[in-house]
Design a protein around this nucleic acid. Structure first.
Lengths: 343, 343
DNA sequence: GTTCCGTTTGTTCGCGCTCACAACCGGGCC
DNA sequence: GGCCCGGTTGTGAGCGCGAACAAACGGAAC
C-alpha cells in the first residue's frame, strides 16, 4: 500500500484516494456523490475539490454490483438502417439520457423467435434494467412476449395487440384518413399498395383503408403488396400502370410510393393528373418527390421518447396494468393527390 | 443464510448456488464458465447441468469489477437518423457482437466541444473500453481528439486528417471519379453542389471535384453549397435552373440530388437531356428517383465494421501508430447522367 | 514403498462501492 | 452539571466474481 509509487501506470483514482485527499472517510465521499443529506457544506466543498483535483470518476461496475442497478436500458431493433427505426432509436436515446440511463443496443439478425431470444438474452446478460423493442413484426412481438424475462419490456412502433405495453401511432386511423382524403377528392375508390404480411403496421393500415372504403360504400379493389422498399413499389407500380381504372393509390409507406411514382412516370401516367398517390410516414424526402408526396406523418422520435418514458414509469414500480399509448398521426397535404378526373 | 426460504421474490441465483447444487466450489463453476483448462469432464457436466437447472446467468457487474473490463464499447453519433450514420451504427453493432462486446450509444446534441466532451464522459462513466465516433464534422473530430481520454478512440466516416485512427471512404477519389465521368460524357465543365462547410466529407468531395476539373483543364465554376438535406438541394436547384450554361452537376450527396432533380423538373429542364446529375452515397432510394440517379456508392455498413475491427485491434494491445483505413467507393451508373448536348 | 510432478479442486482475498449501524459532537433542557 | 437529541462522520460488512495460492489426488519413475 504505502509502497505504491505513482508509477508510469498510475491507476485510476478510487473513492479512498479522494477521501484521503479531502481528509474524510470514503463514506462521506459517497454521500457527497449521491447527494445524501447531513453533510456539512465545508466538508462537501473539500470533497468536491478533491474529486476535481484527482479527476475522480466513480466506478460504475462497483456501484452496479452493490445497488443491483445497472442504469442501463436495452434496445432491440430490426432493420435499424431505415428512417423509422433509426429515428425511434434516436428518440429513445435522448429520453433515456434525460432519465439518467445508458442505452445499449442489440440488433436482430432475423425475425424468428430464436434471434429475438438471443438479443434479449444478450441484453439481460449485460444487466439491463428494462428493454424497448423496436420490431414491428407480428412474429417479433409475439416472440418477445414469449421470452419476456424478468425484466420489463416495452414495444414501440409495432401494432397494438400484443400482451406487452406498447407505444404506437394509430395506423388504422391514419390510413383511414388518407383513404378518405382521396375519396373526398372525388375518386370512386382507392387502391392500396400494402406492406408485407406479418407486419402489424401492414395489417392496421390495410384495415383503416378498408374501413374508409366501406364507410363510403366504395368498391374494395384487390390488394397489391410490397415489402416496404422502393423497388417493390416500383414493381407494383408497373402492374398498376397497366390497370386503366385506377385513379388513386394509397401506399403503406413513402418508400414504396417513391417507386410507384417512378413506375407511373415511366408509363406515362401523370400524378396527380391521371392517378393520385398518398404515402405514409412523411420521411424527410417525401416533400421532394416528383410530385411532392401527400402522406401521413408519424413522429418517430416522439414514439421512441414515449416508449422510453413508459418503460421508466414501469421501472419506477408503478406496475399498472398493460398500457397502450396510441399517438394520432397527421395528414400532410402535398401535390401528389388531386381531384379525380372529370370531377 | 440457512433461513433463506425461496420466498415469492427468490433472488437471482449466484455462482455459489450453482456450486452448491453441483457439489463443487464456486471457483470450479467459474472455471467452467471461463473455459479454463484442468476441469474433469464429469465435473464440467455437473456444473453445466446445475447452471441450466437454475437458469443461472453470471453477474456482469461483478465480473467487470474484478476483471476491470466492461466488455462494452461506446458509440458517439450525430444525426443518427440519417441513412449513413444509421447504417454505420448497424455495422458497428454487428461487428461488436461477433467480437464479444456490447454497444452503448450516446448521441450528440450539437457539435461543439462541450457536447462531445459530455458524450464521451458519459460513455467513460459507464466504463466503456473504447469508443467509435461517427461524427464527420471537422469540429467534432478535433473535439474528440482533444478530449481523447484514457480510452482508445476511432473515428469513422469522417475525413482523414485527424490525429486519431480513422476509417473512411475515399471521398476525394470518389468525387473525382464522379466528375470525370461527367467530363468524359462530353460536358465542358461540371458544377458542384457541395455539402456544408465544416464537414470533412464536404471538403474532400469538393477537392476531388476540383482536381478532376483541373486535370481536364476545365473551368472551375463557382460553388453552390447545401446542408445535405433535400430541401437545400431544392433551393440550390432553383438557382441553378436559372443558369443557362449549366449542363452537369455533381451533388455531394443523394438527398440534395433529389431536391435538385425536383427543382430542375419544375423549371422544365430535363435530366439528363438538359442537365446531367450525379450524386454521392447511393442510398437505397437513389435507384428510384426520376430519373434513376447515377451516384457514388459507399458501403456504410462495411465502414462501421472496419472501424470496430480497428478499435478491437487497438484494444488487443497492438498500439501500432495511428492507422487510417480508406475504402474505395464505387461508381453506379444510372440514367441521370448522359452525354452533353450537341455532342 | 517412496518421491516427484502434473492434474484437479478448494480457500482466501480483494475489486470499489453502498448500506447499516456505531460513534461523536454540540446545544438545549431540566 | 448531566442528559437527551439531532446533525454529522466513521467503521465494518458484503455485493458476486476471478486471481493467486494451497491442498489433495493419483500415476510414473526410481
Amino acid at each position: 500500500m504505502g509502497t505504491e509509487t505513482a508509477g508510469p501506470e498510475a491507476r485510476q483514482p478510487v473513492m479512498a484516494d479522494v477521501a484521503k485527499l479531502a481528509g474524510v472517510s470514503h463514506q462521506t465521499v459517497s454521500r457527497v456523490l449521491n447527494g445524501a443529506p447531513h453533510v456539512r457544506p465545508g466538508t462537501r466543498d473539500r470533497v468536491l475539490a478533491a474529486i476535481r483535483e484527482l479527476d475522480y470518476r466513480p466506478n460504475s461496475a462497483a456501484r452496479a454490483l452493490v445497488t443491483r442497478r445497472s442504469q442501463t436500458l436495452g434496445v432491440v431493433s430490426f432493420e435499424s438502417t431505415l428512417y423509422g427505426p433509426a429515428s425511434m432509436l434516436d428518440g429513445i436515446e435522448r429520453a433515456a439520457r434525460s432519465a439518467g440511463y445508458f442505452v445499449s443496443v442489440a440488433s436482430l439478425r432475423s425475425l424468428d423467435t430464436r434471434s429475438v431470444q438471443e438479443a434479449v438474452d444478450r441484453l439481460r446478460d449485460q444487466g439491463v434494467e428494462g428493454i424497448v423493442v423496436i420490431a414491428p413484426q407480428t412474429s417479433a412481438v409475439s416472440a418477445v412476449a414469449k421470452v419476456s424475462s424478468s425484466v420489463p419490456v416495452v414495444a414501440v412502433g409495432s401494432g397494438a395487440r400484443s400482451s406487452i405495453p406498447t407505444v404506437t401511432v394509430d395506423n388504422r386511423s391514419g390510413a383511414e384518413a388518407a383513404t378518405r382524403q382521396l375519396l373526398d377528392l372525388g375518386h370512386r375508390t382507392v387502391h392500396h399498395l400494402a406492406g408485407p404480411a406479418g407486419w402489424l403496421e401492414s395489417q392496421d393500415r390495410q384495415e383503416g383503408w378498408r374501413r374508409a372504403l366501406k364507410a363510403a360504400d366504395a368498391r374494395v379493389p384487390t390488394l397489391a403488396a410490397g415489402d416496404w422498399s422502393s423497388r417493390s413499389g416500383y414493381e407494383a407500380g408497373q402492374r398498376i400502370a397497366l390497370l386503366t381504372d385506377v385513379t388513386a393509390v394509397f401506399c403503406a409507406n413513402d418508400h414504396m410510393a417513391l417507386g410507384l411514382l417512378r413506375a407511373l412516370h415511366e408509363a406515362g401516367r401523370s400524378v396527380p393528373g391521371d392517378i393520385s398517390v398518398v404515402g405514409f410516414d412523411d420521411i424527410p424526402e417525401a416533400a421532394y418527390f416528383i410530385p411532392p408526396l401527400t402522406t401521413v406523418r408519424q413522429d418517430f422520435g416522439e414514439l421512441g421518447r414515449r416508449a422510453l418514458e413508459l418503460l421508466v414509469a414501469e421501472l419506477g414500480g408503478s406496475d399498472h396494468p398493460i398500457s397502450r399509448i396510441r399517438i394520432a398521426p397527421e395528414m400532410v397535404l402535398r401535390r401528389s393527390a388531386g381531384p379525380a378526373r372529370r370531377a
